[in-house]
Design a binder for these strands. Structure first.
Lengths: 190, 190, 190, 190
DNA sequence: AATGAATGAGCCTTCATTCAT
DNA sequence: CATGAATGAAGGCTCATTCAT
């Protein structure tokens, strides 16, 4: 158990440290050296767990995806209706950005510094965002039961765009009034 | 004159090459070495024109700001009304992204890879985006003459959020249907 | 064991090469590039052993301190009395400078090219010289048992000053007659 | 007159700035760029006055030689006897080092960072020091009229060694008590 | 599973100097 | 006499990765 815990914890410790640094400093601006130093691991240890920096990056985004989804669902699941859940997503956005010191979204940030679309990181990024999109779709369908699929798609997509747009504005301007505007618009759509 | 032209063109050549590379590869992933090589300049030549990479980065963003604004205005100015101009901004977005191979916005990309808000690049970035915001405000005021300032601000901000959100989605998914959704929403707002 | 020996010897090889070059060319005029080239090491190897050039400089001075003290003590310890030992120090000075091609003292040279007194190298330098001062003090106390502490301090300090002054003159003029004069003066003091 | 003054002042301004920087930072650690920048001159202007950095270094040492000698003579000339003049040289040393923030002697410092004895700077350095030696010789001869030339040489050389040794100790330890000891020894010799 | 020395290309920047104007 | 753009080698240092132990 101790052994298992240790072996798990070594790899996980690296991921944990990397997550913090990749998010705070950016993926490309964070070096393996800093990661292993702060994780208390050796060079060789790192490369026995990950065959490259990119593989660590992917592990980071996969873990981030799980964690972030968990945060979000924990936040909105207590809400009763699909409508209040959708509004809750935007409340979550404000909470999240405030706590994160307006650093923005790890996935969007990494997308912005990774032009190559064939890059494996980009796959994780679009997977993550697609799942968020699906959530908007599902909640919209649940809420707007009488509307046509096309109308539903229009609304879900708009919500998704508003979410991403507000996120970027918060990151850029550190100004929560963007969130208030977005929420008003969201309410108007529901 | 030849000398002046040459000496100017040398500095401008560096900016031009840097603009291309910074945009295509990202600011941090582009080295001075590559820039001067592709510009056919020597190390020392570079540093006689720019005191640091950051100064070049700022020169890049300032030039980009002018050029991009010029593109946009040239695109929307022929339109007759404030309303068609606002819709035109979103048409421009589609044109731009298609031509740019969906690389996204130089300013947002650089923001995403530059966490430090005190960074001089960030100043240029928010300046650029604030000006775009002002354009939305001005056109909204021109169009919605009967609405209250608060209502105008709500609409202009929503348009701005939609613009940025759509931009990010195009960059992420390379899927112009996001633009169609956004345009529908924009029309509904006007 | 072979591994350990090799890995140690790599670091030591760098120190050894650096010691030679720092002494012969000066600390600031010697680049890391030249050091690693002559030591047959890679850039990264160097920086895995030393976190900066300054750290290597300190390692150099620390090693030099040990080696030089060893040379000196081996030279004067065979002498019987404190008096002959003190004269021996000046004989050693002549031998040393002759063998060193009158390059002077690594510590004084580095002090002269390092104006910042807070610099870590300066700490090593004054440590080294203070220890030499202590040797003069100890031998003076042993020799002049009847004199007052104040008188002893006066003599020890004078000997120290004469040593340093002669050293500098030898370095400047390559003329051993300065040493003869100094020795005469030393004898007069004892 | 204005023209002459300006043309003189440009070259002299460079020398003046260089003097300050070479002394404070060391010869090798000071770059031409910093010098011309602080002197408000252009690259080409510099190289029209000096064919190389070394030539500026020589101009610096020549000017320094004149200035320093002037300082010293102005300090000791008011003294009546050769004896008080010689003691005055050591008083001057204390004044000088205190004012110079214990940066030491420009000539010795440059010697220490210039191993190559054939270097033109070294020529200026030994010229300067030889002249100081001559001063000690002349004053000793004036004072010790009854002593043999050999005895005079012994004393003058000892004074010279004490001067240089004390200078180095002040630079190293910033401790004026070395000067007191030296002065006591000097008095004993006269 | 873990270590850490070794690699060499690359990072941004400064160096002393030349030369056309 | 003065300018300042251009040069390219070198400065100290970090990068992601490999490999023998």
């Amino acid at each position: 158990m101790t052994a298992k815990e240790n072996s798990l914890s070594k790899r996980d410790e690296i991921i944990e440290v990397a997550s913090k640094l990749f998010y705070e400093q950016g993926y490309h601006c964070t070096g393996i050296q800093q990661i292993i130093q702060e994780a208390g691991a050796a060079k060789g240890t790192f490369y026995s767990h990950f065959k490259s920096k990119e593989e660590l990056g992917i592990a980071w985004l996969k873990a981030r995806h799980e964690k972030w989804n968990h945060w979000l669902l924990q936040f909105i699941n207590p809400k009763q209706s699909a409508k209040t859940k959708m509004i809750g997503i935007f409340d979550f956005l404000g909470d999240w950005m405030t706590k994160a010191d307006f650093r923005g979204c790890a996935f969007l940030n990494t997308m912005c510094e990774t032009p190559d679309c064939e890059n494996a990181l980009r796959t994780e990024i679009s997977k993550h965002k697609r799942e968020l999109f699906e959530l908007f779709r599902a909640l919209t369908a649940e809420h707007h039961t009488t509307k046509s699929p096309a109308e539903q798609e229009q609304i879900a997509t708009t919500l998704f765009i508003l979410f991403e747009g507000t996120l970027i504005q918060l990151q850029n301007f550190h100004d929560l009034s963007f969130l208030q505007v977005a929420k008003k618009q969201v309410s108007a759509l529901l």
